[in-house]
């Protein structure tokens, strides 16, 4: 009799625990993404992005972002500027071919979400918080990066024409 009680108890706990499970969705990045950057005398896009997105609005604890941008895919609309951008004077794409972002945790904000994580560019990693929205399966973020924090270019000679602060406008449509 006692065994039956324990059996029912175990079944009840198992059944109840099922209601506490929260699923997370693993998304694929749709090819219509865009990564635009704008600074003084510097404007363009990165054409190649890859990564893993695990995101569920109701389960931020289990969500994660991991993005990799191919530095060689930069396009400023000018061939000479492109070559200059990937040279060792700026991104040094030969030594540091990728820009990456890996999330650590998410928080909900008034207008959307914020993701805390580590941005690695030009071989330098910095912790940063990126606010973003998630609507109609699209992750959209507008934020700024200070290029000198990552030792991308200098403020000497003609390089000083390019502002330290570079604004980024990122839109990443996702598919299940």
């Amino acid at each position: 009799m006692k065994d039956i009680k324990y059996f029912f108890l175990a079944t009840a706990v198992l059944a109840l625990s099922a209601f506490t499970w929260k699923t997370v969705t693993k998304w694929k990045i749709d090819e219509n993404y865009s990564i635009r950057f704008v600074g003084t005398d510097a404007e363009g896009i990165f054409k190649k992005l890859s990564g893993e997105v695990v995101f569920e609005e109701s389960n931020l604890e289990s969500s994660s972002f991991s993005f990799v941008v191919d530095v060689n895919s930069i396009n400023t609309g000018n061939g000479m500027k492109n070559k200059h951008a990937i040279s060792d004077k700026w991104f040094d794409a030969e030594e540091y071919p990728n820009i990456s972002f890996k999330s650590t945790n998410f928080t909900k904000s008034k207008v959307g979400y914020s993701v805390n994580g580590e941005l690695t560019m030009h071989g330098i990693s910095k912790k940063m918080t990126v606010p973003f929205t998630f609507e109609k399966d699209v992750v959209a973020a507008k934020f700024s990066v200070k290029r000198l924090d990552f030792k991308v270019g200098t403020m000497e000679g003609n390089s000083k024409k390019v502002s330290d602060e570079i604004k980024l406008d990122v839109s990443i449509p996702l598919i299940k």
Binding site: R36, E43, G44, I45, K47, N75, T76, G77, N78, G79, M80, K81, N82, K83
Partner: peptide, 17 residues
């Protein structure tokens, strides 16, 4: 043409000059 900035959708700006 050396300084010209082409539309960002154009993939080969280095060939323009």
């Amino acid at each position: 043409p050396i300084a010209f900035t082409l539309p960002l959708e154009f993939d080969y700006p280095e060939l323009f000059p």
